[in-house]
Simulated assay, not measured.
Amino acid sequence: MKKDLEQLKKNLTEMQFAVTQENGTEPPFRNEYWNEQRDGIYVDIVSGKPLFSSLDKFDAGCGWPSFTKPIEEQEILEKDDYSHFMIRTEVRSKTAHSHLGHVFNDGPEPNGLRYCINSAALRFIPKEDLDKEGYGEFKKLFEQQ
Rank of each mutant, 00 (worst) to 15 (best):
F52C: 02
E14Y: 08
K69A: 15
A18F: 12
F124K: 08
S66K: 02
L141H: 04
P70R: 00
A18L: 12
E75K: 06
F17G: 04
E73H: 08
K57D: 01
P27W: 13
H97G: 06
T20P: 02
I117V: 15
L8W: 04
P27E: 15
E78C: 00
K49W: 00
I87K: 09
S83W: 06
R123F: 08
S93D: 05
K49C: 02
I125C: 01
F58E: 08
K132W: 07
E90S: 14
M15V: 14
G24S: 07
P108A: 15
T89C: 12
N118T: 07
I71Q: 01
I117G: 03
L12A: 14
S53D: 01
T89A: 10
D59S: 13
L77I: 12
H102L: 12
Q37L: 11
T25W: 00
S98C: 08
E128T: 14
Q16D: 09
L122Y: 07
N111F: 10
E137S: 12
L130M: 09
Q21P: 08
G136V: 00
S47R: 04
S119Q: 09
G61H: 11
L8Q: 10
F142C: 06
N11V: 03
Y33D: 04
F29W: 14
P108C: 14
P110W: 12
D56Q: 08
E32C: 06
N111E: 13
A120W: 02
A96R: 01
E73F: 00
G112W: 09
M15E: 15
E22V: 11
R123N: 08
D4M: 00
N11W: 03
G24R: 06
Y82N: 10
M86N: 09
L55E: 04
M15P: 08
D106H: 12
P108F: 14
L8V: 07
F29D: 06
E109I: 00
I117T: 05
Y82V: 12
S66D: 07
K49P: 01
